[in-house]
Structure formats: structure tokens, C-alpha cells
Nucleic acid binder design. Structure first.
Lengths: 327, 327
DNA sequence: TTGAAAGCGATACCAG
DNA sequence: CTGGTATCGCTTTCAA
């Protein structure tokens, strides 16, 4: 890899001049510019970002903190972030935290050691360590966080409950997401409001994780506790699918005997039959907009909205019964 | 963030000494060491990796090139890579290539600009640009590539066909993966060998991508071309699930009227009912072992096996009929 | 309009 | 054992 020195030599100018054309900053004569450009071409030179980063105390790298990349919600978010970041000249360092606070700390440290320009975080509490590094929180957002892209969980909870309430539910069970996950509570509150309004009774079923590995156990427990459930508002698509599978296996007809609605709209939720009705979260867009927001912060561009809220949307597939019109 | 200079000052020694205790290289007196350690603690100092990288011309970053992170096979692979890499003191820069050659080139350049220590690549042809940077190919491996972790596609193709052949197939259709994807051919060859041996007729159905977005179209085409298929050897789980969904939707009983086997064993393949029988590829392990191999290359440690082949495994779920014992 | 030179934060050689 | 110093590749004053 050629260096700026070699370019300077070949072009017969100083490194300062080369640097100037590279960043087109300051004055540089037409003559010199041309010679430098030729030299750059000839040597296939491209600047070393490490040296730049050392000087600037700021790299072109952005840290991406994910709770669990195996959870299919996050790859999509990552893809969105990646697309945006790339268009803006940055790259992502991946931090897969596995819901482990120590790993998070570790990553934040690594990020700092690498002069990271900013952090995109879909895990809670990253704001503690970071001092002067821009941070945008994604998806799981606490109310005190300054920059964030998230969805309206309350509305999501309402939408799910509404869809259910419209379909003549007998025995409603609401699955409640882990307490640590911001948004779980909001969703629940939204759902409860609807059921209260409609005067529909419901049971709660608390889940303690969103991890794929824990589904079997959770589903078993679910059917033990609620053998007569006929309408389930699930905390996410993974659990919804898992419950559907178990139901079909037991010969319970979906949606006639058991109707269910998920949350997230993962790519797979439409690959089953009956297809899973669900509340679609724009995972890709969360990542994309979050990355844009972060880059604006990094570059001190004016930011209109510090907290972006994206809409969620009801997606109807076959796991819900026909809507019953009440007079 | 404190620097080595400040540590040196506080400890009353030179930066050289601080550097020595940091890397414990060379001699350093007990007295000095202690003072330095105290200073480090007091200032909460940790070395700037960028400066290190500039000097060493080699960072602690590893590039990970993925064809499409939204394809659920790859997050698992990434997770494996991430786990291994992290244990060994490295971090990952994510490169999501979207099956686009230009983006790949672009990433390879960015990697170089960042003094990347090595590259893990699940896309084809990365070896061209890289000069002196260690490269380990993952999963989609060409025969000429030096370092690689992959599975035995031929065996996989055989296993799938065998499972099918054992189950009294009437109208067999083999879905053939994209020609550009190394392994597609091998799998096909493996399957064909079995069907030939058993004297079972089969049809071929060519697919042109592995992308999630293209399933609907492909499935439609599939049913148009092969309305009477009763046994499908699918090129991956996504297509298998998509075909299953369409079949169930059409009232075709799985597995009695249509049996099907997938390839990959994605996390979701067990969340449907009937569950998808499939050939399990150890995605996590491919990433994990690949990362270990790469780190060994990077650190010039002796490498026993340059090309690691991991076994695939038949996973039986409900999408295949009962095995028929022939006398 | 240009170049010389001083850093950015760490490492490693060489002399003492 | 320890410290001074050149160096990594680039950016940015400051003078000329």
C-alpha cells in the first residue's frame, strides 16, 4: 500500500500538498493538483484510515451493539444500519452482547480504544460509560435517552389487543415481555387499556427472555398454565410461532380453537401456514434512520428530531379469526 | 482518555517503561512495575488501539464479509465468528455484501485502510484483492481457496436424497441452488448419485438465488412446473418452508401427499408444524472454527488443517413420511 | 500557493 | 533495568 509520502515524491510536491488535495482543504494550484492526482492514480493510493484516525482522534467506525444477533429481529436492523452508514462513508464494528452487561462494558471499551465515531445501541444502559461519544439508542429505548429511534409500543399493544378484541375472544392470555426490556410495559399497558374498554377478561403470562433457546420451556409452561386459552397476544413472533406449532401438534385448530397474534413481523412469520398475524416493526428502518441520525450527530449537522418514533402496523394473516362486526 | 505519557509522568518513569509493562516485554524492575500499575489503575488507562495499529501496521480488527445478513444462516455464522474472535482479543468489522461484487471490493478496500488483521469471508472471490492479509473462506468455498471452513456438500446432497429415497417417493423434484454458489453442484451430484443407485426418477428445478425476497415468485413457478411433485429435495430451508406453506394453503397434506426436506436447519425450521426435516449445517461452528483458524494464521501459529470440513447431519421432523423398510 | 515541521499515542531499538 | 528517540501515515499550523 502506497503512502502519502510516495505520492508526494512521485508528484514532486510535499506531503502537505498531497494532503490538501486529498481533503480538498486550503489552496492548491491547478498544476500541483493535477500532478498529485496522476500520482495517486498511478500508485493506486488510498489513505490509511488508521493514521487519519490517530490524528483526528476520531475514526470512520461506528459501533453497533446488539442484544442477540441470532434473534431475527436484529439482523434486519443491522442491515438497515449498515446500508445507511455505508452510504455516509462509515463502517460498523459489531458488538453482540448476548444480554450480558459485562460484554457490553467490554465492547464499549473496545470501541473507545478504536476511536469510534459513534455508537448505535439496541441494548439498554450503554449511555453510562460513553462520555463524549455520540450515541443513538435503537428499538429498546428508555425514556431518558437523548437520541433514539423507536416505535410506539403503547400503540403496538393497543393494535394487537384491538385486533384480538374484534375477533370474539373467549379466553384471552397476554404474554408479557421481560421486565428489563423497555417497551414490554408499554405494550402491556396498551393492550390492557383496550381489553378494559371492551370489558374483556384476560390473563397474563410473564416471559423472562426473548431468546430463541428458551422457547421450548416457555411454551410448555404456557400450555400448562393456560390449557384453555383461545386467544393469545404474544410478546413476539418467535413465541407466537412456537405456541402455534405446539397447538397444531396437539391438534388444536388455528385460528378456530386458538387464535394468536405476534409482534415484530419477522421475515419468517409469513412462511408458515397459517401465516402469523402480527404487529410489524420496521426493523430495517429503525437501523437505517438510527444510523442517519447518528451520522448527523457525529458531523455536528443540525438534527431536527432527536427521538424518532416510527409507526407500527397490524399485519393480518391466517392466525386470527374473521373479524366480528358488532352492531 | 488517559495516554501512556500521563501514566509515565504519574509513575515517574519513561513511556518506554510503561510500554514494557503494558506488553510485558523486556525487563522492568519490580519497583517500576508497581508504580506503573498503580498509575494505570489510578488513571483508568487503557491503550489506544489506533496508535498501536499504526505502528504495527496491523490492527485487532477482523473483517467479516457476508453475502446477506438477512438470510438467517449468516447471523448464526456471525455469532460463532464473533464469539471466537472476541475470546482471542479481536473485533469484527461487518461487511454485508448483498451479493454485489462492487460492494465487496469496496469493503476489502475499507478493510485494508483500517489495517485489518485478517478477513473471514462467506462470499466468493475475496481472495483476488487481498495481498498479504490472511483470509479464511467460510461455507461457500471454492476448491482453490487455501484456508477454509466448509461442509461436505456432496454428503449433504446424499443424505437428503437418501432420506427421501427411503420414504417411497413417487414424483421427485430436486431444487438446484444458484450456479454461482459453490456447493450447489456438489449437493446435486450427491443427490443424483443416490437416486441413480436406487433407480428413482427425478426432475430438476433450478433456482437463481437464495434471497428471501425471491421466494414467492419461485414457489409459484415451482408449483406451475411441478404440480404433481410428491417429494421435494429443497435447496435450502427458506424455499422448503415457502413450498410447505403454499402446499398447506392448497390443502395438500404434508407429508402424506407432499413430503419435503430442506437444507441448513435454520433456527425457524423447527418452529413450524409440521416441522421441517432438513440437513443441518453447523453455521455457528463454521463461524467459530473459521475465526479460530484465522487468528492462528494471523498470529503465525502452526495450523494443522488449512481446510476444515465439518459434518452435516440429517434432522428428521414431520415433513417426511415414515421410513419404508425394503426387504 | 507551497513546504517544513510538529504532533496524534503507542512501540522498539539502542545506548547507558 | 531504564530512558531517549525514531517511527508508523496523515493532518494542520506557521512561515515563507
Amino acid at each position: 500500500m502506497a503512502t502519502i509520502k510516495e505520492v508526494a515524491k512521485l508528484a514532486g510536491v510535499s506531503v502537505a500538498t498531497v494532503s490538501r488535495v486529498l481533503n480538498d482543504s486550503g489552496y492548491v494550484g491547478a498544476e500541483s493538483r493535477k500532478k498529485v492526482e496522476q500520482a495517486i492514480e498511478e500508485l493506486e493510493f488510498y489513505p490509511n484510515e488508521v493514521a487519519r484516525s490517530l490524528f483526528q482522534k476520531k475514526s470512520k467506525l461506528i459501533g453497533l451493539l446488539l442484544p442477540d444477533i441470532a434473534n431475527p429481529f436484529f439482523p434486519l436492523l443491522a442491515k438497515g444500519a449498515e446500508d445507511a452508514v455505508n452510504q455516509l462513508g462509515y463502517s460498523l464494528i459489531l458488538g453482540n452482547v448476548q444480554d450480558d452487561v459485562e460484554k457490553e462494558e467490554e465492547y464499549l471499551k473496545i470501541f473507545e480504544q478504536n476511536n469510534i465515531a459513534g455508537v448505535l445501541s439496541a441494548v439498554q444502559g450503554s449511555s453510562k460509560r460513553l462520555k463524549n461519544i455520540p450515541l443513538v439508542n435503537l428499538d429498546r429505548v428508555e425514556s431518558f435517552e437523548q437520541y433514539a429511534v423507536h416505535t410506539n409500543d403503547y400503540q403496538g399493544g393497543m393494535l394487537a389487543a384491538q385486533a384480538m378484541a374484534d375477533r370474539d375472544p373467549k379466553q384471552v392470555v397476554i404474554m408479557v415481555g421481560p421486565k428489563e426490556v423497555p417497551g414490554s410495559f408499554e405494550r402491556l399497558a396498551g393492550s390492557i387499556q383496550i381489553f378494559k374498554e371492551r370489558d374483556i377478561a384476560y390473563h397474563l403470562f410473564q416471559t423472562t427472555s426473548f431468546r430463541l433457546e428458551d422457547t421450548d420451556e416457555t411454551v410448555e409452561l404456557f400450555f400448562k398454565e393456560h390449557p384453555n386459552a383461545d386467544s393469545v397476544v404474544a410478546s413476539n413472533d418467535v413465541y407466537a410461532l412456537a405456541i402455534m406449532r405446539e397447538a397444531v401438534k396437539r391438534g388444536i385448530n388455528i385460528p378456530d380453537e386458538l387464535q394468536i397474534i405476534g409482534y415484530d413481523d419477522m421475515p419468517f412469520s409469513r412462511l408458515t401456514y397459517p401465516g402469523l398475524s402480527t404487529i410489524a416493526q420496521p426493523a430495517y428502518e429503525i437501523g437505517y434512520k438510527g444510523a442517519q441520525l447518528l451520522c448527523n450527530c457525529i458531523e455536528n449537522k443540525p438534527v431536527k428530531t432527536k427521538r424518532i418514533q416510527l409507526p407500527v402496523e397490524l399485519v393480518l394473516r391466517e392466525s386470527l379469526r374473521e373479524k366480528v362486526e358488532h352492531e
